[in-house]
Design a protein around this nucleic acid. Sequence first.
DNA 1: ACAGGGAGTCCCACATCGTGAGAACGCCAA
DNA 2: TTGGCGTTCTCACGATGTGGGACTCCCTGT
Lengths: 276, 276
Amino acid sequence: MRTPSEAPWSQDHTSGAAALAKALDLWLRLTAEPDRSLREVAADLRIPASTAYRLISVFESRGLLARIGSGKYAAGGAVAQVAGLTDFNSLVAAMSRPILRKLASQLARTIHLGVLEEDMVTYLVKEGVHSELLFTREGMQLEAYCSGIGKILLADLHEQRLSQYLGSGEFVALTKHTITSPDQIREELETVRALGYAFDNAEVDEDLYCAAVPVRDGNGRVVAAISASGKNTRCDDLGLIEALKQSAGEVSARLLALGAVFSRHIDDRNGSVAAE
Amino acid sequence: MRTPSEAPWSQDHTSGAAALAKALDLWLRLTAEPDRSLREVAADLRIPASTAYRLISVFESRGLLARIGSGKYAAGGAVAQVAGLTDFNSLVAAMSRPILRKLASQLARTIHLGVLEEDMVTYLVKEGVHSELLFTREGMQLEAYCSGIGKILLADLHEQRLSQYLGSGEFVALTKHTITSPDQIREELETVRALGYAFDNAEVDEDLYCAAVPVRDGNGRVVAAISASGKNTRCDDLGLIEALKQSAGEVSARLLALGAVFSRHIDDRNGSVAAE
DNA sequence: ACAGGGAGTCCCACATCGTGAGAACGCCAA
DNA sequence: TTGGCGTTCTCACGATGTGGGACTCCCTGT
């Protein structure tokens, strides 16, 4: 408390609690601008680094803030609770949306995030400038075997589960490029697994191309996938793949920080991971 | 700072920031247990009411807390930002889910919350003990004219918009009870508007009954609807309607507190409310 | 009308508590 | 090596938040 003279603290007249106000402002700005370092944000608020770190540690101890990488912070698991985000899907959607929105404008593509539910892909997030051009909708379910996101998600299923899937359905050809034979699908998935990313070259819709990469949890399991789509624009650019992977990593980090409950997805596995 | 001796403050050794920790704990418990009064929660934490109110006002000033009614508090709009809840739908879903979950177990029914999108009902929340018995899914879209939620939402459309809707489509009979004539639908909607609630007596699915009530924004406009459904169980119990209305009011209050952006829904109106 | 109680606000002397400069450590890159 | 960044710790000081209590509304029950 060495700054008695100067104290134009925004527009608060909430006297007798300046310290708390400062702490909250620090937290809000830190979570709002995840790309800036703690020192920078603290400097903006005229908070010495020493004090800032002390404050931060309290937010961390209450689960309101989490470190994701060095010098990077994000909202912690407690905010999900406060916000009422109880189920996995809405948690993923909420946490990934800002990241995907940024990615969408960066790549000038429509970005999707999807999870596997009942052998189908459920789209949780759709972000993009001209996203109305695509027929997809958040909450919509689509077949998994022909979309980029679907391939990523299927590629991480354990063998038993995959065999069941490949044996269960009839795989209709949505376009002339759709892979419909179970053997060919299996082969495609192996390629996807090896590459770490997947393409959809007009297999769902003519002149619709997309690239997809996995979002993994702390154990390396694939819990979701994100894709970049373009109409009449092939997406096999490696720079694009890298950008996707980068964002997927950010989403993973945020989910990890949130301590999200991944148990719902574990039944995809052979039971090697403890089920709920 | 008159309590020098006693200070078994949970399990924090985050020394030098006890005040902040106390403040955050107060906030967390207040948002986690919305039914308890501030004085109660504060007493639990050994915080005198006087101090508690001062702390609270800071959270309020930062938008992290909002008063909903007397002695009732809920997470404020800023948490939605921190949590990354940017769009209206996920905001509504997140904020209403805890309330609807409680309602579902209270009524022993499956509860839905839906909004109107492109003349269809989009289900944002589905909560209930035996919810797997129903064919609905979050994110699913259904025709509006035959469901309870749909009727509520349609009943609030302005005349021009409603005429357009009634004139546009063909209304297929999903069951023998489905109302399919535009004139009869209009009549039904007028009844709904007068009553303030709507029924679906096996109009979507045989032996599926439901009752629905509106969720309104600060201007009284209907922005969503919630319903209680039962298989082979009629839902015209007035106690049930009251419980629904009660929860709808809570959802409304929370949305209001969040300062949610309702502009997306305003184009349903004649322009009497300022558009974004 | 009255009492009772709970929500919410304000005041102010006191001394506890947070503050913040600075030193220090590990790491990475130039 | 130097410099910068992220992070943690210490410590003396005094500005800061504290909290008891009085007070005002606005209920609700009698």
